[in-house]
């Protein structure tokens, strides 16, 4: 567990700088130095007058179980949203009309956000889960030898997540 700052709320001038026993709150980036932060200390979290500091956990519970018919119907929608993004992308690639391209970008962006949210509700709400590890392993075994697959990065990611 470590403390983190919400940079939109922090006024950059006060008590966390005085109270932190390790100097972790005083950095050139404005963010807390996570490596210097003491696990479970939370002195700055309680002291901040702006409610700008929170704790980031290092362990998470397994995602909520999902009913098979929920998974199935959400996945159909993911499929459809991804197809919409693809069509919008193709129309955009085939046109040099700036207004049409703008509309296509809006559809691509919005469809992607909707698809991501559907995935989120399909058991992929966090990366530290059995489902995500199984997914990454399947990606390596199915696509790992294809040109451009970021294999080393994915293998490192898997070891960080386990």
């Amino acid at each position: 567990m470590h403390a983190a700052r919400n940079l939109r709320l922090c006024t950059k001038d006060c008590v966390c700088l005085f109270i932190c026993p390790t100097g972790a709150t005083n950095t050139e980036t404005g963010q807390i130095d996570f490596d210097k932060c003491l696990d479970g200390c939370r002195l700055c979290v309680d002291a901040c007058p702006s409610g700008a500091i929170y704790l980031v956990s290092s362990t998470y519970p397994a995602p909520q179980p999902k009913h098979p018919s929920v998974l199935e119907t959400l996945y159909s929608l993911v499929r459809s949203k991804a197809a919409q993004e693809d069509v919008a992308h193709s129309v955009k690639e085939g046109s040099d009309d700036a207004a049409l391209r703008q509309i296509c970008t809006v559809v691509e962006t919005s469809s992607r956000i909707i698809a991501e949210d559907l995935w989120r509700e399909s058991g992929y709400i966090i990366a530290q889960s059995e489902a995500t590890r199984a997914l990454l392993k399947a990606m390596i075994s199915e696509h790992g030898t294809m040109e451009g697959f970021p294999r080393t990065e994915v293998e490192e990611l898997l070891s960080r997540l386990s």
Binding site: V78, R79, K81, A82, A83, E85, D86, R112, A115, E116, D117, W119, R120, Y124, I126, A127, T132, L135, M139
Partner: peptide
């Protein structure tokens, strides 16, 4: 694109 959206979600 389904895979890409799963990855950008994570």
């Amino acid at each position: 694109t389904e895979l890409a959206a799963l990855c950008t979600n994570l």
